[in-house]
Design a protein around this nucleic acid. Structure first.
Length: 606
DNA sequence: ACTAGGAGCGCG
DNA sequence: AAAGCGCGCTCCTAGT
């Protein structure tokens, strides 16, 4: 007996359920007629360990919804006996492939990683395509990269909003967005309808986006490149990083102690809640501290920079308390929670997240671990017999800027192996420049890189505004190609609007009124692609050792006895030339724990 | 009760 | 003339 199909709000499109043997037979027949196959999953939640609930397949007019646990043969045939259809289509393939892989290879981490890498790379991922067409998210004024906004925009399917519909459904059942996904009946009419629709929308999006990416924009190579990167990143998520549970517990205990002491101290001065900026400001004013800066909304500004300039016991307690609290809540507790499941943290690594093409890591945010407190990184360690190493590019953004600007004066300094910032300082102040002058020169280069005003440069380096202005002007005078490139970039952006592209072809949207940002975006985006390129090359040789990407540095674990050898080789693989500009990398060996690279000398003994 | 935005802070 | 860039996360506050 066949289970009745569900008619969807889209014209002539249906969702079929696989519940009976007859359903299964009909599905196999349908499957044999597909060449492009979109798939999607529903899970109990968004975390790495949350199990699969439903698996959906679809084309542009039909979807099939099944319980993967009841149909392991279907899952295996589609995902492990490839080549029966031309392509697999998914929206953010990494998420679904990991969920499917976890079901297939529950007890075999290395098989899981291999499966994830191979399958993600093979997918036509509509999220990657979306990003190549327009990298902006909704907050930035772009279309966004979720299935819903993309369907609204490209398919005019605005009426379909599974998220909202299901949220309401959850509510009517006494559930919420956390419990609902886990507890709603597997065959709930709305649940399976929207599950199936997502596969259909993905299939429709793919048709439109493939045309745009491959034909209109000629970004086929860029797409394949980003698929490769996405696959490597998904593999790293699947591999995870080993957690040192004992270290994590003791870090948590130490931070808790610091937090409690600092909080009591702050309370003594009248601040019940250190995270309330109004309380902090009020208490400081009462103590006779002079505050001068206000925020955009007119409240007293009491950020770390201001507090640290105060030399006040309350200010110190507030800073200590906030730092400890942030470290616990953002990193140590999430690491402990995830580590408690299988001993590893499987952070989500988004291969194509920033509008410049940079990657991001979340749950937890492992690209943002504090550098001044090794105890956080101490929670993360290499596997048995291995050590953590970090290989990072040398001044990648400055080199990219020199290349993009064709600034020979900087390029020749780089080529001759001279420190770039010293070379700039020498050109500005002569060969007897002071360390302060080097630091100001470095600041000026970064100001150029970010499009900062002399005012900002002054604030950051401590010189007065006039001095900052003079330095910026001198920089422009001594490096005329850099000045011209920056100026031309901004003018071109103003004139043309729309999108501009990096040399590798990545499209960067122009923000009206903020054209100066293009200078930075071109540099950051090009640097991101160089990094990804290096990561791909390292992956070819040492894929099984990759742990995390951190903007311009690759974190790996390597067998202890080969650490030097592999480190050096990895740097060779990362390096290359950008036109005339040499691109180089260096490595450092941390130790069994990542924190070993950040441990101050005194702490090494203890 | 839940949401959105602001403020703040961590990194490259 | 003026402009620091890109992220993720947590907490607070004010809104519904």
């Amino acid at each position: 007996m066949r289970t009745p199909a569900i008619k969807t709000p889209l014209d002539d499109t249906y969702v079929y359920l696989i519940k009976t043997e007859e359903d299964r037979e009909a599905f196999w027949h349908w499957l044999s007629e597909q060449d492009a196959l979109a798939f999607d999953t529903e899970t109990e939640g968004l975390g790495f360990h949350d199990p699969l609930r439903l698996l959906q397949f679809g084309n542009t007019t039909e979807a099939w919804v099944l319980d993967p646990h009841d149909n392991p043969d279907i899952v295996e045939t589609v995902f492990t006996h490839s080549a029966a259809w031309d392509k697999l289509v998914a929206h953010n393939a990494a998420f679904d492939v990991i969920a499917i892989g976890r079901m297939l290879y529950r007890d075999n981490p290395s098989m899981l990683i291999e499966f994830v890498e191979n399958t993600v790379e093979e997918c036509y991922d509509t999220q990657i395509m979306s990003h190549l067409v327009d990298p902006r998210d909704e907050r930035d004024g772009g279309v966004g990269h979720g299935l819903k906004p993309l369907s609204d925009h490209y398919l005019g399917a605005g009426a379909i909003d599974g998220q909202t519909a299901l949220k309401n459904k959850f509510r009517s059942l006494g559930l919420n967005m956390t419990t609902g996904w886990k507890q709603i009946d597997l065959w709930d009419e709305d649940y399976v309808l929207y599950a199936g629709l997502d596969a259909i929308l993905t299939a429709r999006l793919e048709e439109i986006l493939v045309e745009k990416v491959f034909t209109e924009l000629n970004l086929g190579d860029q797409f394949n490149f980003d698929c490769k990167v996405a696959a490597i990143c998904a593999g790293m998520t699947a591999r995870g990083v080993r957690v040192d549970m004992e270290a994590a517990k003791s870090t948590l205990a130490a931070l808790t102690g610091e937090e409690v002491t600092a909080r009591q101290n702050a309370a003594f001065y009248g601040v019940e809640n250190v995270n309330s900026t109004s309380q902090v400001a009020e208490a400081l004013l009462v103590r006779g501290v002079e505050l001068t800066e206000k925020t955009e909304t007119g409240k007293w500004k009491v950020d770390k920079e201001i507090l640290s300039s105060l030399d006040d016991p309350l200010a110190k307690s507030v800073m200590t308390c906030k730092a400890a609290n942030k470290a616990m809540k953002s990193w140590v507790e999430p690491i402990l929670t995830q580590g408690g499941i299988l001993g590893r943290v499987h952070a989500r690594i988004a291969a194509l997240r920033a509008r410049t093409g940079r990657m991001s890591i979340s749950e937890p945010a492992l690209q943002q671990l504090p550098t001044d407190d090794y105890r956080i990184r101490d929670c993360l360690i290499a596997d048995e017999g291995m050590v953590i190493i970090a290989a990072d590019y040398d001044q990648i953004e400055v080199r990219v800027m020199a290349y993009l600007a064709g600034e020979d004066a900087i390029i020749s300094a780089i080529k001759s192996g001279v420190d770039v910032h010293s070379s700039v300082a020498e050109s500005l102040y002569g060969s007897s420049f002071t360390p302060q002058q080097r630091s100001l020169a470095k600041g000026a280069v970064f100001a150029k890189l970010y499009g900062a005003s002399p005012k900002r440069l002054a604030a950051q380096t401590g010189v007065d505004e006039l001095e900052a202005k003079k330095v910026m002007a001198a920089l422009d005078r001594n490096y005329p190609r850099l000045a011209r490139w920056s100026k031309n970039t901004i003018e071109k952006a103003r004139f043309r609007g729309g999108f501009m592209s990096t040399p590798s072809g990545r499209r960067l949207p122009v923000d009206r009124g903020h054209e100066y940002k293009l200078v930075n975006h071109l540099v950051q985006g090009t640097a991101a692609d160089i990094f990804k390129n290096g990561m791909i090359d390292v992956h070819k040789e040492y894929g099984h050792l990759l742990l995390l990407p951190v903007h311009d540095e690759i974190i790996m674990q390597v067998p202890e006895y080969q650490a030097e050898e592999i480190g050096a080789h990895v740097c060779e693989l990362m390096g290359g030339v950008l036109g005339e500009v040499p691109i180089t990398a260096g490595y450092k060996i941390a130790g069994r724990s990542w924190g070993d690279a950040y441990r101050p000398k005194e702490a090494l003994i203890a």
